[in-house]
Amino acid sequence: MKVHIKHWHAIAQWRWDIGKNDDDDDGEGDVCGICRVPFEGCCPSCKMPGDDCPLIWGECTHVFHMHCLLQWIGTAASKQQCPMDRRPWVTAERKVDAGNPR
């Protein structure tokens, strides 16, 4: 039997490399702790996920949508602390390699 391929459709999936295993412990997937939207979605202020709505890492290892975190850090009440552990927020020197998704 010979098979002739006439059409094919490629399907790709991307996700941010947040340095965790795929199997999340609570099964609800990884969401931004501030807006509760999955990391692969975008913050509520953006319309399109991806490079325009990146993630931000703290040296404390906590991850958020960058826009969500910056909005919080911009309030006086935040005292520039990480929303998860209240340590002073220091952005980690880690860049998402957009060209190399998992």
């Binding site: 807006c35 509760r36 509520p44």
Partner: peptide, 15 residues
């Protein structure tokens, strides 16, 4: 729909 409302909808869903 605003950011706050979207978040509240998620809160309600979780609750």
């Amino acid at each position: 729909s605003t950011n706050c409302r979207r978040r509240l909808i998620r809160d309600f869903k979780r609750l």
